[in-house]
Simulated scan of single mutants.
Amino acid sequence: MNIQHFINARKQAGLSQSELAEGICTQTTLSRFENNGQVPSLKILIQLCNRLSLPIGELFPKVGVKQPELSAKMDQAEFYLITSEHEQLAEILASIPVDTIEDQASLFRYYYLQGFVMIFQKASITDILFTFDKLLLMEKQHSNPIFRLLALTGSGMAYSREGDDEKAEFYFEQVFEEIYTYPIKTTEDTWRVLNIVFHCGEFYGERAELATSNALLDYALTICSDNHVTYYLARAAYQLAVNALAEARPKNEVSELLADAKAYAKINRNRILLNKIANLQITLDETN
């Protein structure tokens, strides 16, 4: 649903939320619709549109109309998230006016990617959580729970970045068990499940809960193997190497994991990870 089109029509009519809502619904109901995507009853929505002389059909995506350019941009943006090229991801999202997104699945995808790039760009935690809250509220209208799990993961990452591990773990625990049974049916499912599993594993690794971290990362490797994808192999192998170093495992085991990570990172041209691998190799070489 194109809520921004509704908001634009209200503003063009010179009406405040309270003025438009008068006699139809509460201002709070209208605010929740415009700001959080909570759609009121169809009866209320029709009355609001009639007051604006806005055909209700204009709020819904046109049947049969596809947005191939948008889809291609989203695919590229999601790939940049996988390869940690966050500046390029931000540039693509900035080129997509959110009010032009007509289908709900693409809007879910936009907010999920926007929330994650905000984490890496060190946006304020309130802005990050607001973005993920939009996704959580919208997800109630959709049968695919993956975006809810991504929003919960991103919220946990945001609190972890702030050093608030207690709140971060609350969110990670919400996805911990469910993600193991999530059915992977498409390439996009694979990317998104790996995103969740990897970041959960990274979080527990940073907390020195290494057994939990290793189990999650091993699961990530299994997903990659079963679905013939390589994009998270390098990152999972690298984090396993970090964990192994923290566990004071033999240097040859750590070196083997780093070699695997390096090989996969080269295949995927992940320059950022290659630099991190090189730095960890220096640290390893300096240990006794």
Rank of each mutant, 00 (worst) to 15 (best):
K66A: 10
V63Y: 10
L48I: 11
G64Q: 03
D75L: 07
P55D: 08
G64C: 05
P68C: 12
G64E: 05
D75C: 04
K73T: 01
S71A: 15
G57L: 10
L48R: 07
Q47M: 09
E58L: 15
Q67D: 12
G57Q: 13
C49S: 01
V63L: 12
E78L: 11
M74K: 02
K62A: 15
G64L: 01
A77I: 04
F60T: 02
V63R: 10
D75M: 06
L52A: 12
G57F: 07
P61S: 05
L52Q: 13
F60S: 04
A72Y: 03
A72F: 03
I46P: 00
I56D: 00
P61E: 01
M74W: 01
S53L: 13
P55V: 15
E69P: 05
N50R: 13
M74C: 06
V65K: 14
A77F: 07
G64K: 02
I46L: 09
F60Y: 14
D75S: 08
N50S: 09
E78V: 08
L52Y: 04
E58Y: 14
V65Q: 13
A77C: 13
L48Y: 05
A72R: 08
E58V: 14
E58C: 09
P61Q: 07
L70N: 06
A72C: 08
A77Q: 01
K62M: 12
P68G: 13
P61V: 02
G57P: 02
Q76A: 11
L59R: 03
K66L: 14
D75N: 08
N50W: 05
D75P: 02
K62Y: 07
E69H: 10
L52D: 01
S53M: 12
E78P: 02
N50T: 05
K62C: 11
L70G: 02
A77L: 10
E69A: 15
I56N: 00
G64T: 05
D75G: 04
K66C: 07
S53A: 12
G64D: 05
L70H: 10
C49V: 03
Q67Y: 03
V63E: 09
F60Q: 00
K66T: 10
A77M: 08
P55Q: 13
A77W: 01
Q76N: 07
L48Q: 10
K73G: 00
Q76L: 12
P68K: 10
C49T: 08
E69I: 11
K73Y: 02
Q67W: 02
Q67E: 13
R51F: 01
L48S: 07
L52N: 08
P68H: 09
G57Y: 04
V63G: 01
C49D: 01
L52S: 13
N50Y: 04
M74E: 02
S53D: 14
V65W: 07
E58F: 14
E78M: 09
C49R: 00
E58G: 12
I56E: 00
V63H: 08
S71T: 14
P68V: 01
A72Q: 11
R51C: 05
L52M: 14
D75F: 04
E58S: 15
M74A: 09
P61L: 03
L59C: 03
N50G: 03
Q76H: 06
K73I: 00
I46S: 03
K73V: 01
R51I: 06
S71Q: 15
K66F: 11
L52R: 07
L70I: 05
G57I: 12
A77K: 00
Q47F: 08
